[in-house]
C-alpha cells in the first residue's frame, strides 16, 4: 500500500487514489494531421520503463485532483510529486 503525497491534501493511502498511467501525453492538436500509425502511437503506445516513471494519479476518493508523480517502478519509491501543468522537477517532460 503506497503512501502518496497528494500536493493538495498531503500523504494519503494508495487506496484513495487512481493511477492514470503515463504522464505528459498530449492529445494531438490536429488529429487529422496524423496518419493511423501516429494516431495509434498516441492512443496505445506507452513508455513502460523499469525504473523512474512519470505518471498521473488522481486523488479520486479525496480532493478529486489530478497530479503528476515520478515513481520508481522497481522500488516503488516516490521521487517527486508535482501539479498538473508544472514541469517535472528533474527535467522536461515533453
Amino acid at each position: 500500500m503506497l503512501l502518496i503525497p497528494c500536493p493538495w491534501c498531503g500523504a494519503r493511502d494508495e487506496s484513495e487514489f487512481t493511477c492514470g498511467g503515463e504522464a505528459h501525453i498530449r492529445r494531438p492538436a490536429d488529429p487529422d494531421a496524423l496518419d493511423d500509425a501516429h494516431w495509434a502511437d498516441y492512443l496505445f503506445m506507452r513508455a513502460n520503463p523499469k525504473g523512474s516513471h512519470r505518471e498521473r494519479w488522481c486523488h479520486s476518493h479525496g480532493c478529486g485532483r489530478w497530479f503528476n508523480v515520478e515513481r520508481d517502478t522497481v522500488t516503488h519509491g516516490i521521487v517527486s510529486v508535482y501539479r498538473m501543468g508544472e514541469p517535472p522537477p528533474g527535467g522536461d517532460g515533453s
Binding site: M1, L2, D13, E14, S15, T18, C19, G21, N48, K50, H53, E55, R71, T73, V74, T75, H76
Partner: peptide
Amino acid sequence: DGYNSYSQRGSFQ
C-alpha cells in the same frame, strides 16, 4: 494492482 510495476510486490488492499 493499478500502477506500473516491475517489483513482483503488490499492495495489500
